[in-house]
Design a protein around this nucleic acid. Sequence first.
DNA 1: GCTTGACATGCCGATATCGGTATGTATTAT
DNA 2: ATAATACATACCGATATCGGCATGTCAAGC
Lengths: 116, 116
Amino acid sequence: MYYLGMARTPTTADVFNAVGDAHRRAILETIGGRELGVGELVDALALPQPQVSKHLRVLRDVGLVHCDRVGRRRVYRVHGEALRPIHEWVARFEQLWNDRYDQLDDLLVEMQKGKG
Amino acid sequence: MYYLGMARTPTTADVFNAVGDAHRRAILETIGGRELGVGELVDALALPQPQVSKHLRVLRDVGLVHCDRVGRRRVYRVHGEALRPIHEWVARFEQLWNDRYDQLDDLLVEMQKGKG
DNA sequence: GCTTGACATGCCGATATCGGTATGTATTAT
DNA sequence: ATAATACATACCGATATCGGCATGTCAAGC
């Protein structure tokens, strides 16, 4: 009989996966709050240019970076909001090791009440 | 000439990678704050038992779950603190889309001062 | 126009990864 | 001791993934 199913879950190129790679994380860290061209990333990370470009492509596809064309350069910046799913997912487990944020949430609620 | 280097970065089985897989996340979500045996996970997730066991192995290796032997069962529980690296990494970018937590951090510092 | 610069993309090889099936192992029950 | 339960592990096939190299593309300068 022939093989029909998928061999592995199609890595729905999602944010969790994109951040799973150390080089991709390094790229995001290097860009930080700045706007960097590919060449600057290549210099900073000491990686071959095609590799950086391909990682940037992945990050772009999941919305983690945005890109502007400036002359013949491509200027990349981090779109931090794309990390929100990760933040919220991790937050679901946070209380299992740290209740500080729950305290803070309560506090915030109180503050809002006081202000209103 | 012969090929010498590594073909890819050795997926240093780290927490980021472990959480990159959707099935693994589902396992963590299903366990949640409870203690579950493998069979219960198999039933809940409708996955083959070996697959669940192997994912649990990965989660164990990175410290995301702990395991106790209870009779002939293995009872798994989430060790949420292992998610801290992810939390902290994401937090570094949080200010790029949400400054609420910075406010809260400032507030916490003030509270501690008041208490001390 | 042609060249250069800055980057994206295509192709390839090696391997890590995931799912499936079969089998091993340890513990309880009889 | 034997059998059954609950799970881990081994092995395999298919493919996704990453790194390296070569080439394509597109804007700017001459």
